[in-house]
Amino acid sequence: MGDPSSVATFQFGGLTFNAANIYSGLIAFVLVFLFVFALSRHITMKPGKGQNILEWLIDFTNGILKGSIPGNETGAFGLYGFTLFLFLFISNQLGLFLQIAVGGKDFVRSPTSDPIVTMTFSLATLMIAQFAGVTKYGWKKHFSGYLQPFVFWLPISIFEEFTNFLTLGLRIFGVIFSGEMLLKIIGGLAFSHGIATMIVAIPLELVWQGFSAFLGAIQAYVFVTLSAVYISKKTEIGD
């Protein structure tokens, strides 16, 4: 893993696709949907177990957004934040218990351990931020925000957008990628010298898996929080 030759690729419609990303992405999407679908079956005034979990999750992600975005503007981004959080969370955890490699090529792993995937979401967040800024203030006022505090700040503003995009995507990628890398190394260690190394490696693997699960949750939270921060920055330049 990490080695480009370890992923199977295929061509479709003139585009190159990474098989591991497609499969694991599909699994994550389906898992998220099934999770939400299963919990939202019997929606009643008096919430049942599933509905309680779902309502708590919605409150949680709305709370993240409300922490950064002032007023009632969170409503528009609530669904994005909710879906993003669930998808990133499940993606981060996916590779911890399910990694399938066939013939030295990965097929299922954490989708977020590929920078392309995480950058897709960071790009989506920044596009939403731009869009929100334009809809709230109009083209002129929105882009005049790049000239604040003075005109020559423009290169720095543009560079800031670019670094925001990179750091938002690469942060989660780095954490998940390194976590899975270490899991694989410990796994390789376990099978290297028979029983003796296995006994040493299994507790290590357990500890690292637990830590990675924690990191995966934190990273999903951080990603949504930073998304909210970037969106709020674009929707309150006037203030």
Partner: peptide, 12 residues
């Protein structure tokens, strides 16, 4: 990865 980007990005 960047050469693979467009397909995966679109898919996601």
């Amino acid at each position: 990865a960047s050469s693979l980007a467009i397909g995966d990005m679109l898919f996601y």
